[in-house]
Design a protein around this nucleic acid. Sequence first.
DNA 1: TTGTAAGCGTTATCAT
DNA 2: ATGATAACGCTTACAA
Lengths: 341, 341
Amino acid sequence: MGKGGWIMVTMVDVADRAGVSLGTVSRYLNGYNLREYNQKKVKEAIRELDFNPNIMGKALRQKQSLTLGVLLYDWTDIFGMSITKAFGEVVEQSHYSLIMCHAEGDLKRRRQKIQFLRDRCVDGLVVFPILWEGCEDLLQKFLDERIPVVMMDGWFEGLTTDRVSVENASASLRAVEMLIHANHKKIAVINGSRTETVAQERLSGYREALRLYRIPVREDLVTYGNYNCAEAYQITKELLSLPDPPTALFVANYYMTLGAIMALNEMNVRIPDDLSLIGFDHFELSDVIKPPLTVIEQPVEEMGQAAAALILRRIHGDYQNFPQERRINTRMLIRDSVRVL
Amino acid sequence: MGKGGWIMVTMVDVADRAGVSLGTVSRYLNGYNLREYNQKKVKEAIRELDFNPNIMGKALRQKQSLTLGVLLYDWTDIFGMSITKAFGEVVEQSHYSLIMCHAEGDLKRRRQKIQFLRDRCVDGLVVFPILWEGCEDLLQKFLDERIPVVMMDGWFEGLTTDRVSVENASASLRAVEMLIHANHKKIAVINGSRTETVAQERLSGYREALRLYRIPVREDLVTYGNYNCAEAYQITKELLSLPDPPTALFVANYYMTLGAIMALNEMNVRIPDDLSLIGFDHFELSDVIKPPLTVIEQPVEEMGQAAAALILRRIHGDYQNFPQERRINTRMLIRDSVRVL
DNA sequence: TTGTAAGCGTTATCAT
DNA sequence: ATGATAACGCTTACAA
C-alpha cells in the first residue's frame, strides 16, 4: 500500500512562513483586506512554498463539492459535447469541474449514474432529457435539496426546473418556409423521435409552415429517424423511392443529415439539382460536404453559456424568476443546397 | 447567500440510530468484521436514514480526491472520447470520477488546465500527448509527487510513464500489404502529422510494406492531413489531380477518411472501381458509407480499459515493472473498398 | 486588522 | 469486536 498522498503545503505552512496566523492566510486567499505588510508577507510565502489551496478541505467545510453533473446522451455526440464544452469553460472560471454521465445501458444503469452524482455531492446538474426519462423521481430529489437543475434542449413534464433550449418551432418553420419560397411543395422531413419535446416542436414548425402556405401535409413525407445516422440513411432511400418522391428534404439533426447525404451520394441524387436539402446543426462535416449545405445552426456555445450563467446564479442562492426558460434563437446558414424550382 | 448545503445524513447519525459508535459504522462500511447483531443494526440504520457516505470527508482524510484527470485533444473528438468513455466506465466502479481537459487555446491556456487538475488534486492522469507538448515540465511534477500518469496513444520523449497505444506500424503495414496483394503499386497515404509519434509509426509501416515488396516510395504520394477532415479533403483532390495519380489510398485517421470520402464523392471517383481505399477507425459513419469501407479498427474500449487497469494499479502503489508499455493490436475489417487490379 | 478555536464527515490509532 | 478521539485542510465566528 503505497497509497495516498500528495506532498501538501498547507495554509498552516504558509502562515508559519509569513509569520501570521492561519486565519490571516485564509482571509488573504478570500480577498479580505489585510495590512499591507502582511499582505506582502503572505503573498511571498505562497510563492516561495508553491502553495495551492486544497479544494477538499474547502469543500468539506463549505459543504460544496465544487463539482457539477452533466447528464447527456453520449460522450461521442458532437451536439451535446459542444454544449457541455462551452458550459465547462464558463464554470471552470468559478472553479467548478464537471462529472459527465452518458445514458448508455438500461434504466437501472442510468439510475446508478445519477446516484453516482449524488454520492459525489454535485452542487448542480445539467440534464439533456433525451434518454433520461424514468429518472424524474431521482432528479426531484436534487430539487428537494435545493440543488439547481437545468434542463438543456428539452424537458420533462412535472419537473419544475430552469430550462435552456432553442426556438425549435420557428427554426424549422423558417427552413420549410425557405423551401416553399423556392417553390417546393413536396417537402419531406426526417424528424427526431415521436415522443420527445424538441422533435415535436420541430415538427410543429414544419406543419405550421405548410399550413401558412396552404400546402396539405403528406403524411408519407413525415418520417422519424430517431436522431440516428443509419436510420436517416434508410429513410432517405425510401423517401426517394416513393411513387411521388419529394423535391426537398428537411432533416432535423446533424447525424441524420449525414445519413441522408450518404444515401443521396449513393443513389446519385444530386444536391440541389435533384433534391433540395436543409439540414440541422453546423459542425465540421457541414463545411466539407459539397455543395455547402444550407443548415440551421444551433448556437451551442450560447446554450452552454446560458446554462452556466443560470446554474451559477442558482447556486449562489439567487432564485429570482424561477423557473426560468431561456429560449435561444437559431441562425440559418444559407448556402447552396436549395434550388429554386 | 442561500449557499451551501445538501441535507446530510452523517455516519454519526447512523451510529446513533444503530446504537453503536462512529468507528463501528466506519468499519462496517469498509468491510471489516462486526458482531452479527451490530452488522444488522447498522445496515438497517443506513437503509432507514438513506445514508450515503460523504466523499469529501473521506477524500480529505485519506488525502485522495477520488478524481482522475484526462488531457485530450477535444471533447468532440470521437476517438479520444470513445477511449475516455471506456476508461471512465472502469474507474467509476472504483468510485473515481473524471475531469477532462481539452487542448483548445494557446499553450498558456493549456498549462492553466493542467494547473486546474493540480488544484483539484487528481489522483492520476491520462494524457493523449497530441497538442499537449510544451507541458512536459508540469506533467513531470505529477510524477515527482508519485501521481501516476499514463500516456495514451503516443508519448513524449524524456517523460518516464506507463503507456498504452496500438501497434501502429504493423497496422499500416498490414493495410498497405493488402493493397499490394491486390496488385496496387501506386499507393498514396494521408498521414497525421510529421512530428508526432503515432503518425511516424504509421508512416513507417507504410514504408516498410513498400520496402518488403520492393516498391519504390513515391514521395509525392506521401501526404499529411494533420488529422483534419478538411485538409484530407483538399489533399485527396490534389492526389487525384496528379499526372500519375494513385490507384489506392490509405488514410490514417477517421476524420481524414471522411474528408477523403467527401472529396471522392464530389469528384465522382468511385470506390473501389476507380480508387481503392483503406481507412482508419471504425465509428458510426464507417457503417453508413457505401460501399462499406475496409478499415483498421482501433480497439478503443480495450485501450481505455487497459489504461484504467494500469492507473488503478499504480494508485494502489503497485509499481511492478514500471514503466510499462501496453501495445494493443488493431483489427482489420475487410469489406468492399479494395479492388483487385 | 488579526489571532484563536470550533467544526465540516470521514478514517485511523489507541485503548478497552 | 468496539468505543473514544485525534487528525485531514479549510472557513468562519468570536475575541481581542
